[in-house]
């Protein structure tokens, strides 16, 4: 009996991450394209405006903040997470050394990595927008805050990560064992019911009022929970489509 190759799971996952990050890169290019589209959409009037009447002066502020970019990135992360959990992507993993769990872990790491890059893309989009704005509206251009503070970057990263994690989890739930699938459907029905009957059940008001750091920690904790569930489901699930 020849000796079996003993590859440590960590090494395998590392290699999987390396290749996946390269192969799924089109997800990031679509984010860039989305950001450019939304930059153009909101270029004229910013993503928020404030108006003040002062005597016969009507002052209007067009505010260019990160909100739209981050929201787009969050939705993107959710859809990307869903996409990564589809059969088309997961089947490719079977051609190389992997188990369902290792492939899930690698995908999760890729989602985290992409979330980081997404934050950078957000910043890049933002500054590109500002330079366009500066060149066009030189005289009425006000810089309130130019440098994105680290705490805000953390919130961006955390929320994008969270949405990616939720997307991934939902995707894996629907591809997992039948019990998980049923539980997920039940969960969705119940939460939909709750939302319709008690719309005030979900109150993000107090959540928003937390400090940036606390918000990002909440996001991270939830994301970790989702990631953990994803790995657990992946470890239970079979390769479908036989």
């Amino acid at each position: 009996m020849q000796s079996l190759t003993k590859l440590s799971p960590i090494l395998i996952i590392k290699k999987q991450v390396k290749w996946k990050a390269k192969l799924y890169i089109s997800a990031l290019s679509s984010l860039v394209i989305l950001q450019i589209i939304f930059t153009l959409l909101f270029f004229n009037h910013g993503n928020a405006s404030e108006g003040y009447g002062r005597g016969n002066v009507n002052v209007q502020f067009f505010i260019y903040s990160l909100d739209v970019y981050v929201m787009v990135a969050m939705l993107w992360a959710f859809i990307t997470g869903l996409l990564f959990s589809t059969k088309a992507y997961r089947r490719d993993d079977l051609a190389i050394i992997s188990s369902q769990a290792s492939s899930a872990i690698a995908t999760i790491l890729v989602v985290i990595l992409y979330s980081m890059i997404a934050v950078m893309i957000i910043a890049a989009s933002y500054y590109i927008q500002l330079i366009g704005l500066f060149l066009r509206q030189k005289d009425a251009f006000i810089i309130d805050q130019l440098i994105i503070s680290p705490s805000i970057l953390l919130v961006c990263f955390g929320s994008i990560c969270l949405f990616g994690a939720v997307g991934l989890l939902v995707g894996y739930c629907f591809q997992g064992p039948i019990i998980v699938k049923l539980a997920t459907i039940l969960f969705f029905i119940v939460s939909l019911f709750v939302l319709i009957v008690y719309p005030e059940f979900i109150n993000l008001q107090s959540f928003i009022l937390l400090s940036n750091l606390k918000i990002s920690i909440c996001c991270f904790l939830l994301a970790i929970l989702c990631f953990g569930l994803t790995i657990w489901i992946a470890h239970q699930s079979e390769v479908s489509a036989l």
Binding site: T5, R91, A95, I97, S99, A101, S102, Q236
Partner: peptide, 18 residues
């Protein structure tokens, strides 16, 4: 779902995809 056996196993069928 065992990564240790997976490292020593390869399955080739017509569903192999890249």
């Amino acid at each position: 779902n065992n990564i240790r056996t997976a490292a020593n196993t390869i399955l080739i069928d017509d569903q192999l995809s890249f």
